[in-house]
Design a protein around this nucleic acid. Structure first.
Lengths: 146, 146
DNA sequence: AATCAAGTTGAGAATGAGTCACGTTTCATG
DNA sequence: CATGAAACGTGACTCATTCTCAACTTGATT
């Protein structure tokens, strides 16, 4: 997959620039993230990796998720649980989330009108926008039968 | 303050309807919330209350914050920390938050255009909207000097 | 290829927000 | 004002995440 190679390059050059090491653990974790559905959490991913490779510790998974989020390969977000969710954020346009409180389904959407208003609101309040997240919690209509 | 009385009435009637008790702890906590700046967290409030009244336990503060959120007197939200924030949500229109990552300042804003788009997005995805939150993280321009 | 300083790792202890269990206390109704 | 269900306080517990630290890699340099 093309994006994966590009992500590895991005990671490698970030590490080099910052005198950090390109370790097999970091590569393995990045690989597994590309094999894994989006909106995963650290524990899920840790267990998935544990089953395929031994000796990658929970701490390393957490540390690497932080690193990748900082570089901009991942996005860390709060989807209304008491744990963080992550998703790939590599060469992807911004989007937000619609979350069903009944079944946990997550739908992504992007809305240029909302994006534009957000920029204007920041401007008006003398603030430089760094990131934003919009979550709409609701209930799928399909749950209505009952 | 007028709103406080109204909130007490709302609490009292909710409790009555559900065969729950109107306790001095619940009243005290509600009072202290009205004396306290918005966007507080449970621990802050607990310490504040601890300093004025003894014998209100941490568990009761948490339990009461949940109760008040359920009734609609408070709104529980995630402002990008690993703990929940609360604010009064009593007779107030919906608003969202602009958060400075440098100084932690929180600015509230309401935008009818964004609200409208959100309703449309829900509609389009066959979902009934229950609640939503939009957070814009940024950096106050005032931090630019230096 | 061997060396070495510095970054990284694994294991498990520690932290911190929030919840739970349970014995005791308190409210609201008769 | 007795009763019994609801609430309370205490402190133990949970669970996600972070920290500590000795042992191990990495990669730049001989």
């Amino acid at each position: 997959m093309l994006d994966f190679k590009a992500a590895v390059n991005k990671l490698r050059s970030y590490l080099k620039e910052n005198n950090l090491r390109f370790t097999t653990e970091r590569l393995t974790i990045l690989e597994e993230i590309f094999n894994y559905p989006s909106h995963f959490d650290a524990e899920q991913l840790f267990i998935h990796i544990r089953n395929k490779h031994d000796n990658i510790s929970r701490a390393t998974v957490y540390r690497t998720l932080d690193l990748l989020s900082q570089i901009g390969i991942l996005k860390k977000e709060n989807l209304g649980h008491n744990y963080a969710s992550y998703e790939l954020d590599f060469n992807l346009p911004h989007h937000d989330h619609l979350i069903c409180l009944e079944c946990g389904k997550v739908v992504e959407f992007a809305d240029p009108v909302i994006e534009k208003r957000q920029r204007e609101i920041c401007e008006k309040n003398g603030m430089e926008m760094i990131r934003h997240q919009l979550q709409i919690f609701g209930r799928c209509r399909e749950h209505d039968k009952k």
